[in-house]
């Protein structure tokens, strides 16, 4: 197929995303421990290391790790409160879970030879659909049928409202798609670009200054993107939550 075509460099930027079993070579059943399992487990350990071990001192004057944990807590809490409103605060643990998981999965994916769990549509899609379904359920439980007024924009002229309602409904159902593909696309594109540059560097051998400089630059950008995408995922979750809690424009 495409990657086996004209390129003499023999670059396989998609290899890093292959899901393979940790032990043996068999087929992948739903319970098989794979490299996905390994890196998800490492993400769990990283979250525990930061938020549990980092804060075990419970110090009034925090250590460095504890300050980072408190910073993350304050950052997400502030975001939920600002965007979703006061009554969104009770969903703060869920959004914190998503944010911490995505941010660590993104950062762990930047380690050389690692596997980026958030570059897979299965992972981001599951999270996005979970957010979409729970937000919709929250909206209907809180407001009943009047939740549908989210799509009926009373500020617009009456003639325009059915058209706007159609657009709103479509954009509402596109939400999980864009929500998941944004994260997956950013992660996959960045890692594939780095892999391609690494292939150039390998092809040029000694003296491959330009590709290595480019890798460094892309790597720095990816660090930024890793954080921003986690932030964007969390803040969009808050925006959707706000729509569910306050559907009336």
């Amino acid at each position: 197929m495409a990657t086996e075509g004209g390129s003499g460099f023999n670059i396989h930027p998609m290899d890093q995303f292959v899901v393979k079993p940790l032990f043996g070579d068999g087929p992948i059943a739903w319970y098989t421990p794979t490299n996905v399992t390994l890196w998800l487990a490492i993400a769990i350990l990283a979250v525990i290391a930061l938020l549990v071990l980092g804060t075990r001192g419970r110090a009034i004057v925090p250590s460095r790790t504890q300050s980072i944990a408190e910073l993350a807590y304050g950052f997400v809490y502030q975001m939920v409160e600002d965007v979703a409103g006061k009554d969104g605060v009770k969903y703060f643990p869920y959004i914190m879970t998503l944010f911490m998981f995505i941010v660590f999965a993104n950062f762990l994916g930047l380690l050389p030879m690692s596997f980026t769990t958030t570059s897979h549509l299965a992972v981001t899609g599951t999270m996005a659909i979970a957010v979409f379904v729970s937000v919709t359920v929250i909206g209907f439980v809180k407001h009943g049928v009047s939740f549908l007024s989210l799509f009926w924009i009373t500020a617009a002229p009456l003639a325009l409202r059915p058209i706007l309602a159609l657009i709103e409904v479509i954009s509402y159902f596109v939400r999980p798609v864009s929500h998941s593909i944004r994260l997956m696309g950013n992660m996959m594109a960045g890692h594939a670009v780095m892999k391609v540059f690494a292939g150039f560097a390998g092809a040029l051998g000694i003296g491959a200054v330009a590709p290595i400089v480019a890798i460094s630059a892309v790597y720095a950008l990816e660090i930024l993107v890793s954080f921003i995408q986690a932030y964007v995922f969390a803040i969009l979750t808050c925006v959707y939550l706000k729509d569910a809690l306050h559907p009336h424009h």
Partner: peptide, 20 residues
């Protein structure tokens, strides 16, 4: 700032669609 990031996310999503 948060509003800006939401705006970035929405406009970026369409670019990601074409990438996809």
């Amino acid at each position: 700032t948060a509003t800006m990031f939401i705006g970035i996310a929405f406009s970026e999503a369409l670019g990601i669609f074409s990438f996809l």
